[in-house]
Structure formats: C-alpha cells, structure tokens
C-alpha cells in the first residue's frame, strides 16, 4: 500500500478518498434515523408536512417542553431503579468476588459454578415463573419488582468480573497489608476496593444501560403509568402522541440523552462493559 506509483495517483492513494467515502456513507446511513429524529423534533406538524427533509424555521423548542412533561417521570423512575440496583450489585458482587478470589473453602467451586451457569441463561427464560413469584409476593407495581431481576443479573456478571479482576491483583499487596495487621475486612476495603474502581465503574454502566433498555419485564410487572421506566414508558408515550411528530421525536431524544451522554464521556468503560459483559446473561 505504501509503495507509491505515479505521482498523481499516489496523492489520491495517500488521501484514501475511496475508503473515506465508503466509511462516511456507512456513518451517514447509520446516523440518518437519529438525525431525522433531531430535525423533526423541532417542527410543527405543518412544517413536517411542508418540508419533510429540511430543517425548517422557526425552530420549535417548545416541543421539548411538551415532551419533557410526559417523559420526565419515566426518567426519574429509571434513575431510581438504576441507582438502587447499582448499589445492591456493587455491594453483593464486590464482597462475593473478593471472597471467591482470595479464600479457599469447601464449596467454593460449586458456588462459582452456580454463578457461571447463570451467565449462560438469559433472564428472559425465567420471565413467566418470576412474574408469578412476584405476584404472590404482592410486589407488582413497585420499584422492588424492577430492582430484583437487575440485581440478580448484575450480581452474577459483577461477581465474575470482580473475581477475575481480584485474582489478577498481585498477592504481595495483600501480604503486605496482612503484615501491617490488616484483617480480611480491612483488605477488602483498603486494598481491593480502591484498585477495583474501574471494574466497579464498568459494572455500574452495564447496569444503567440494562435498566434503560430492558423492555419485557417492566412491561409485564408495571401497569401503573407513574412507575414505568423509560423503555416501556416511551412506547406508551408513542401511543399518546402518535400524530404529534414534533413532541414525539423530542421525547425520544430526551429519553436517549442520558445514555448518549454517559456513552460520550465514559465510552472507554462503556465499551469495556460491552465486550466484557458478554454472554447475554440479562
């Protein structure tokens, strides 16, 4: 590739115009739906009918106010559910991962095996029986019923990720801590936790995106509109505003924004999560 031919062709090769064109075309097609969403979110229905494609002035930012009014409770619920789930997951998974990585005891292999198996089984397979269990416990239409499956899925993945990570921490660190008289709890808190912050961050992000994206579970267990999370809420919202294109698209955008921002600023952890959280356990 680097071996140059005649000079005029060489400069074209050098700039790789063909490659870039194809890649830009890919990106354009992939992003088109989202761009369309942004453009339409600023129109009235009249503008939408008149100029289907173009940005049309004046821009109607009030569509966002209309949409926000309806979307905001869903965002709030999602944030609460995600926050509770993350707190539980980090607590459970960090303790379990630490113990499984650093101690040897009867049943260690069995317990870890039981966790690994769950990685292989998608949570959706449990949808029907879990629904009945929650119904019998009287938990339908609560935050708890949403939190539980995310906590289970996240604890499974988190325990595995943290165990693998803690096994990679050099033993000398723990030995040094013990020489200084640190107990197990102290080692967990002062050696392992600070070192595992990146993994904990990755697990948190996976959980946020799981809560944001999960559809069937909230669809089935929540019928009270004021408790809906984003994905199911959006579908309801779509039903309410099906012919009000501006606010509809504005709502989609508002619902996407938190995830898009997380993705933008934490893309390193996000991608690590996507690639590390692999076998679709949730």
């Amino acid at each position: 590739m680097t071996t140059g031919t005649a000079t005029p062709r060489r400069s074209r090769l050098e700039r790789q115009i063909g490659l870039k064109t194809v890649l830009i075309a890919f990106a354009a097609v992939a992003l088109a739906p989202y761009l369309f969403m942004v453009v339409t979110s600023l129109k009235t229905n009249q503008q939408f009918a008149d100029s289907f494609w173009q940005v049309s002035f004046p821009l109607h930012f009030e569509n966002y106010a209309v949409a926000w009014e309806q979307i905001q409770p869903y965002l709030f619920n999602t944030a609460i559910v995600a926050a509770i789930s993350i707190a539980l997951i980090l607590l459970i998974a960090s303790i379990s991962g630490f113990v499984l990585a650093r101690y040897r005891f009867a049943g260690r292999g069995f317990i870890y095996g039981a966790v690994l198996v769950l990685m292989m089984v998608p949570g959706l397979a449990n949808l029907i029986p879990l629904f009945i269990i929650m119904k019998d416990l009287g938990l339908l239409n609560t935050y708890i019923v949403l939190v539980i499956p995310y906590t289970v899925g996240g604890s499974v993945l988190g325990t595995i990720l943290i165990r693998n990570f803690v096994e990679g921490i050099p033993q000398t660190l723990f030995d040094a801590a013990r020489l200084d008289g640190a107990s197990g709890v102290r080692m967990y808190r002062s050696v392992m936790l600070p070192l595992s912050l990146p993994v904990l961050g990755t697990i948190s992000l996976i959980t946020v995106s799981e809560v944001w994206n999960d559809f069937f579970w909230p669809l089935l267990v929540i019928s009270d509109n004021s408790l809906r999370t984003v994905s199911v809420g959006l579908q309801f919202f779509q039903g309410q505003n099906a012919t009000d294109y501006g606010p509809l698209m504005a709502g989609y955008l508002i619902a996407s924004l938190p995830l898009v921002l997380l993705f933008t600023f934490l893309s390193k952890y996000f991608l690590a999560g996507v690639q590390g959280g692999v076998p679709g356990a949730h």
Partner: peptide, 12 residues
C-alpha cells in the same frame, strides 16, 4: 461516528 448508534436505547 460508526458506534454512536449503540448509545441510543434500543426502544428508541
């Protein structure tokens, strides 16, 4: 640019 769509919720 190519991976940006991953950031959007699947439902959207």
């Amino acid at each position: 640019l190519l991976i940006v769509p991953m950031a959007f919720p699947g439902v959207v």
